[in-house]
Write a protein that binds this DNA or RNA. Structure first.
Lengths: 220, 220
DNA sequence: TAATAAAGTTAGACTAATCTAACAAATAAA
DNA sequence: TTTATTTGTTAGATTAGTCTAACTTTATTA
């Protein structure tokens, strides 16, 4: 059985690997991500290697083994299911769920997580729009849903942005969007994907570039 | 903030004190209850004394301070609310809830527990029939409800027995009772409290001594 | 390509929670 | 009331996870 600390290292490794699109993850980077010193991360890497959870040689590249990856995905599954629970059942707000889920994800009970999944009616995405891996550790490749993927007539809610540049954020504010703002997709041009959206009763035309940079979750 | 380990010591101290009806709790006893060696418990007692959570002098008696007691009750509150959640919402059985609740009780988030309480509709008893302390740390004095306290016409469910003697247990089995068996109180004699109960369609007359030794939870 | 900077590693130390073994105090029994 | 037993305490060691400081390797750049 893994300790919470070990689980956190695996989770960080998986996240960093994904974020960097499978480019190399380094000791310092891992340490920073976990708010520990490089020496600490180095010690843990040796330990995780010993347990066959990471492949790693001195000064060499760090990768999760199949077992390590499966464990990491499983922790993410738990994290996202708990976030969904907190958000949907306990009325936590979007920004409050993370810290509590960080704790809940380390509870050891496979029965608990499968029952929770069922209770939540097998959700596919968490409140941040990130996909929830299934019990086999399968995770949809596209990490979040963008506004571009919402069908005409459907409603959704902004949960994040892909582009963090000032120009783009300014644009976002100009069309009345903030975290959690409800958006309805009114129509979409076949030719150039120019999309007409409705936000707080007002309508705006936005480009494909725009819709691809706004992350959303579907809203009933 | 308290570590899970510290919380467990406080909880054990409170439980042992209650069980022994406020008689002295010793180091060995505490150690046994927590499955550690007396030396370990002794070290922790010093630490808890330093933190003003227990009053304790070398070779002297061990008592929780007001702060310590409040913390301990709060952990019990969390434990019992989680048990109720697992039982009522996730379809855990009566005997499966404890171990998972042991882990969940250490999650740190007052918001979480208050939201959970609300979500469960402010339950008064957990699935074992033990009362759930309120947010102020107030706990009903009677630890569990006995069959003797159930009103005529009401239904309940057996959750435990007070008397564990073979004779009594045999008696219990004879009237068709097991863990979780549904019981209906049909009538009760004013004079000697002889009670007529219905179990699985059959009726039995039982004494006050009997009804006082069967722990129950109310059933809708 | 040699110097410098960045990244990674090692050694040694600390804390929390545990242990064993030895010892001390309090209680029970002869 | 002295001895024996139970109970409680101390000292010293161990493990996981962390740190700092010093050192080594790899990468960058002048």
């Amino acid at each position: 059985m893994l300790s919470s600390t070990e689980e956190n290292y695996l989770k960080s490794l998986l996240k960093l690997t994904f974020e960097k699109d499978n480019k190399q993850v380094g000791t310092n980077e891992l340490a920073t991500h976990l708010s520990v010193k490089p020496a600490t991360a180095n010690d843990m890497l040796k330990k995780l290697k010993e347990k066959n959870l990471v492949d790693y040689e001195k000064y060499g590249k760090i990768t999760l083994t199949e077992t390590g990856k499966f464990s990491a995905i499983n922790i993410i599954r738990k994290h996202r299911l708990w976030e969904t629970f907190l958000y949907e059942k306990l009325e936590f707000t979007w920004d409050e769920v993370h810290d509590v889920a960080e704790q809940l994800e380390h509870i050891q009970s496979s029965k608990l997580i499968e029952k929770l999944d069922k209770f939540l009616n097998f959700p596919k995405f968490d409140p941040h729009g990130d996909p929830i891996p299934n019990i086999k550790g399968e995770l949809k490749i596209h990490f979040k849903k963008t506004l571009a993927e919402v069908e005409v007539g459907q409603c959704c809610k902004m949960v994040a942005v892909k582009d963090n540049s000032g120009t783009f954020l300014q644009y976002v504010v100009n069309v009345g969007l903030g975290l959690h703002t409800k958006i309805k997709v009114i129509s979409k041009q076949d030719y150039d994907a120019i999309t007409l959206i409705e936000v707080n009763g007002k309508q705006y035309s936005v480009s494909q570039k725009f819709t691809e940079n706004v992350f959303v979750v579907s809203k009933n």
